[in-house]
Design a protein around this nucleic acid. Structure first.
Lengths: 142, 142
DNA sequence: GTAAACTCCGTACTCGCCTACGGAGTCAAG
DNA sequence: CTTGACTCCGTAGGCGAGTACGGAGTTTAC
């Protein structure tokens, strides 16, 4: 029985727990996004359980459109003084606001178009097409 | 004087007008994202002015996190019957809704953390760091 | 104590999205 | 009619984010 079984993981178990594959973890280590535990002279590296959350955070952030570089920045917010941390967080927040606005606009446009398409307002050209390309495309149907 | 000067562009002018570089346009053509005008037996290819909007649309969509492949799909909505177009547009809209929700959640989290950091609620660790990593990181400051 | 499963490490490969290069041909201004 | 800027076309290189591989060493289960 290993006395550390619930507080330490091998890379394989970590990968499984975090839902990524081993190679990705090794890649994150290579680029300095996560820390590589020292290798014991005997046996394999051991990862703390919280590394699971750490990696999940990376994946979540990535799905939100952050690059690994940006994620590294987010993580580095941890070093340095609170004021700096806050400044950078605010900047990030502004950027996110912009993204939300853009997506919202696209969403609204799509909704409007879907409505027009459903109503069949325009017999000779599909309103979606029309709007997407502003008089471009071969155009048929609708 | 060229009689078509305001309705046709060379690739260079198109690139300039759309704010991308020539190579990108050629790349988009290669992958079939935009159509390459036929080459006249004499002279250079001519692009219609609306190609500018077309490319700008691509860049806007890209900034919203669409891959070129997805953008191609959006553009292809133009082919096919209105019902199909609408179906795909609705799917896309749902996806965008999800993205907005995620970004909004991140935004709220960041806002909350920025507030906590500003209030200096937690003397021994920066709340942003704490929340980002859930008890990870070297941690100082704040 | 041996076999299967896993880790380690380096290197190489892939895929998406460009960017650069080079030797043509073409155009437009002087 | 020449010169400089631009186009054309193919091919190569680059960066981000992995993925694959292969020959070690190590651990674990039987």
């Amino acid at each position: 029985m290993s006395k550390a079984s619930q507080s330490e993981l091998t890379i394989g178990r970590l990968a499984e727990a975090a839902g990524v594959n081993v190679e990705s973890i090794r890649y994150y280590q290579r680029i300095g996004l996560i820390e590589e535990p020292v290798k014991p002279q005997q046996g394999f590296r051991k990862y703390p359980v919280r590394a699971v959350e750490h990696i999940k955070f990376i994946k979540r952030a990535q799905q939100l459109g952050f690059s690994l570089h940006e994620i590294a920045e987010l993580l580095e917010l941890g070093e340095g003084h609170c004021r700096d941390v806050r400044k950078r967080a605010e900047k990030k927040r502004d950027k996110i606001e912009g993204q939300i606005r853009d997506l919202q606009a696209l969403h609204d446009t799509l909704s409007q178009l879907i409505g027009a398409c459903r109503a069949g307002k325009n017999a000779h050209q599909c309103p979606i097409v029309e709007a997407l390309l502003k008089q471009d495309t071969p155009a048929n149907a609708c």
